[in-house]
Amino acid sequence: MREITYRQALNEALAEELERDPNVFLMGEEVAEYNGAYKVSQGLLDRFGPRRIIDTPISENGFAGLGVGAAMVGLRPIIEFMTFSFSLVAFDQVVNNAPNMFTMSGGQFNIPITFRGPNGPAHQLGATHSHATEPLYANAPGLKVCTPATPRDAKGLLKTAVRDNNPVLVLEAELLYSSKGMVEPPDEELLIPLGQAEVKREGSDVSIICYSQTVPLALATAQKLEDEDISAEIVDLRSIKPLDEKAIFDSVAKTHRVVIVEQDCPFCGVGAEVCYRIQQNIFDELDAPIIRVSQEDVPMPYNERLEKAVLPNADKVIAAVKKVCYA
């Protein structure tokens, strides 16, 4: 194992998959000559050339659709959205074409495509540039959605996504690109299955269920809760869809108390689905009602203080944990 950044981990995953399969190509805005708006595709143009690392004009709907079409005839496109806020311009292709094709064609056309890029609020980018799109996409039957929070998960999930025969969205965490973590050396194949959560920290009093940018938040909060003698278990979903029910239920059966910390907005958010599944399946294990900590239900304000008030934070998580623990 060695320590690399989340950005490097994604870069390695791309390079390895491009190397492995000549049908894989990377397309998006500024991915080639500029080496990626967030430098995730650094060096790939030099290594794989312009046939496979392809800059596009600002035409999200066009190149997302191009990817779906290419996938119909067997290529395995990796489509980068400069951020998932811009994927909304391509919503029709991602939601209406990619996942419906297999069903509509009676199983003739599967769509092995990966849509990837940063997702979720960053820092003071305002309402148009701060979308957490995971509930929008997870709501569409036929799509798979993963949300890696660590370099290791980023690499393993992206590689799996590229090999999947269905449309998969890899929602990267804009604020975590420079974060570091231990990852297997490049000569060891690292594949992390979709639909497998991971307990990032063991605990016994409360299960904090989180994903993406809320994982480091939950981990930091768990540290603080330790000082108050509350032992939090951190369950990182890693994939939103498929959802790892077993990992969730196992943790809840152990702690009997649940706080869900999600980076999206509350209405029909990821936490709503998780809540539903818990109460439906293991209602009797719960010692307290589940609490969700999410964004506030407002378009993201630019002002820094208001933005902080909108986002989940340690204080909100601690308050929720205390409430479910009756502490």
């Binding site: 003071q124 305002g126 309402a127 540039h129 630019y302």
Partner: peptide, 16 residues
């Protein structure tokens, strides 16, 4: 500066 007195009340920022 994201202030209340801004042309978009500090809610929009540079791009809005």
């Amino acid at each position: 500066f994201g202030k209340e007195t801004g042309c978009s009340r500090g809610l929009g920022g540079s791009m809005h």
